[in-house]
Amino acid sequence: MSSRPLHRIADAVIYLVLAVLALVCLAPFMNTLAMSFSASSAIDAREVVFIPKGFHLYAYQYSLGKPEFLRSIGISIERILLGVPLSMLLSVLAAYPLSRERGVFRGRTVYAWIFVFTILFSGGLIPSYMLVYKTGLIDTIGALIIPGAVPVFNIVLLLNFFRGIPKEIGEAAFIDGAGHWKSLFAIYIPLSAAVLATTALFSFVGHWNSWFDGIIYMNSDRNYPLQSYLQTLVLKTDLASVAFNSTVQGYELLSNKNIKAAQVIVGAVPVLIIYPFLQRYFSKGIVLGSVKD
């Protein structure tokens, strides 16, 4: 009985520690969000913590009115619309044969090692760059899609999931005269909604977040996807580089800081929007995908 109050104190400490942890994770985002809505004078006077001071939307209005910002968003959307379906198709098509037993698919082990070896060893930055260069993809959308179009990690998740589907289901289809194509598209894919959603979301987030390929494979910054564009913006240390004149609406409230904050927030929003879906699926998908027999 004497441990009861102690128990309660321990509980209080645990709740407090976790609450502080959550706050630490969230605070930088809240601060950036507040800055994006604040007047430049309030930011310079260090008055902005979590609540905007001198609330305005000009930083967003200015950013979203900038042609190069919009163009980079367009390129990000383009790479997602082309890249995610391509990766998904390639992954599903590769995962299905790899999930067959060796008796059914004799090359399985060799193929599997060819795929997995690419996780273990890579040619590194310069030879990869040279290959993209030699295959003529520099300055094309292909450079952002094709070299990374085979996500081996997703393939491993998918193949482990396919393997977890009872063999009898596939065999029944074969007795009914279905071939591998039909079995994959009519049986395996409909049964794999959770893991397919997970891998598609991973692929989406991966494409949205990629920036380095844009920086190295695009000679012209006109071809940068959003994250590459933001990278050049974020690293711009010259605070005077954005010169405003009175033709910009709300210019007296704008500075590099709130504009940067607004653009960073815009860059985070798509991931935050799909995050709830991602969260619902990923634990399920990852856990199911990694079940071994």
Partner: peptide
């Protein structure tokens, strides 16, 4: 298809 892409863009650089 996946194999072909890996051979070019993952194994190619290894030879490189």
């Amino acid at each position: 298809p996946a194999l072909a892409l890996l051979l070019v863009y993952s194994y190619g650089p290894m030879l490189g």
